[in-house]
Computed example of a mutant assay.
Amino acid sequence: MEQVVKFKNRNWDVAAIMQFPKDFDETKKYPAIVCAHPISSCKEQTSGHIYGKQLAEAGFVTLAFDASYQGESGGEPRFLEDPAMRVEDFRCAADYLTTLDYVDENRIGVLGICGGGGYAANAAMTERRFKAVGTVVAANYGRVMREGNYTAGAAIHTLEAVAAQRTAQARGAETKIIGYIPNSQEERIKAGMNDIDIREAVDYYKTPRGESPNSPNRLRFDSLDKVIAFDAFHLAEHLLTQPLMIIVGDKVGAFGSYRDGYELFNKAASQNKHLHVVQGASHYDLYDRPKATNEALEHLIPFFKKNL
């Protein structure tokens, strides 16, 4: 069973999908899991309709939401990628769950995919209502943007460009909107982008495999100053103490989720922490390919059942 819901962040609505276990009875108490989508994604893709759906089938109430400023959620300006507000979305999701009589407020967990995994880990450091943390191909988006495909000085170059764009906008220029990824494989090839993560991102987001109108591949360029200054894993060695399950694939690409998974594992203060490598799986295999996602869920489901 699926229900469309909204909850507040500041003065706007965050749009979400709630999914429920089979034979759901609202007079009973259930553990709940907040599910966070990747960078540029939306609730209708992997976070809601793959992981959220299967976790609900396993007995959890799940809440998959669109980030503020994106998808069907409110917030202005549109297409903003603001790490501080992305993390606040998680806290607001926890607020909402605690208002539901059928949710056991002492058994709320969080799961994030790709950039949503980095945000989930970051949120859990200060949101202690999250009692267990799962990540799938978690990426530290700030690290990705700082490295700029490993080009020396890329972060400073981007920050200088953002500064110039903000000046132009302050003087009346139109907002600059860019894409997260190429809009087609032809565009990708023309740009000389041959990395596996870029190839498969285009295949996932820009074809019927995963495309959604709520994931339009649009990003405010002047978001990038906030992203570059963000480190999803900052203070994890002090504050991330909850049980932790990290899933990565062993096909390594430019987004660095394999590397980030190990960094998070090594850095987290959690005493109860696990890292599972899905052999033969790429970053995007773990979005929706049944062989890879089923293996991930074979570890995530018992982890959450034990710790929630």
Score class of each variant (00 low, 15 high):
I196P: 00
Y150F: 14
A154P: 11
S184A: 03
S184V: 11
A124M: 04
I198G: 00
G142H: 12
A121N: 02
L219E: 13
A120M: 08
K190D: 15
L159N: 07
P216D: 06
F130M: 00
A201T: 13
T167F: 12
Q169T: 12
P208W: 02
I177P: 01
A170H: 05
T167A: 14
E147F: 14
A164T: 05
P216A: 08
G179M: 06
A132W: 02
Q185H: 09
V136H: 01
E147N: 10
S184N: 10
I189W: 08
T175G: 01
T135S: 09
V202P: 08
R218S: 09
E174F: 07
D203N: 13
G148Y: 13
Y141K: 00
Y180F: 14
A164M: 10
T126P: 06
V144W: 05
F130T: 02
G210K: 06
L219I: 07
A168Q: 01
E127H: 00
D195G: 11
N140H: 09
T151W: 10
E200Y: 02
R146M: 08
I156Y: 04
R129E: 02
Q169G: 10
I198Y: 06
G142E: 10
E147M: 13
N183D: 15
G172I: 02
Y205W: 15
S212F: 03
Q169L: 03
L159F: 12
R146A: 05
A123F: 05
S212M: 03
P216M: 02
R129I: 10
V137T: 13
V133P: 06
K206C: 14
Y204I: 15
R188G: 09
I228A: 02
Y150P: 00
K131C: 15
K206I: 11
F130V: 08
V227L: 12
R143N: 14
A168S: 06
P182Y: 10
I156C: 03
Y150Q: 06
R220H: 08
S223C: 01
T158M: 14
K206Y: 15
R143W: 15
G153C: 03
G148I: 09
T126G: 04
A139F: 13
Y205M: 07
A164G: 03
G148R: 00
N122F: 12
T126H: 11
A161G: 03
S215T: 11
T126L: 05
K226I: 04
P213T: 04
L224Q: 04
V162C: 01
K206S: 15
R199S: 12
E211Q: 07
D225I: 07
Y141M: 15
P182I: 04
N214F: 13
Q169S: 07
N194M: 04
R188C: 08
T135L: 06
V227S: 07
A170F: 10
E127V: 14
G134Q: 11
A139L: 11
E200F: 02
T158E: 12
E186K: 05
E211T: 13
E186H: 10
L224Y: 10
M125P: 13
G142W: 05
S184E: 08
G142Y: 03
E160W: 08
R199N: 13
P216K: 02
N217R: 00
A139H: 04
E160I: 12
K176F: 11
R209T: 13
L219A: 01
G179L: 03
N149V: 07
D225V: 07
A155S: 09
Y150V: 09
L219H: 06
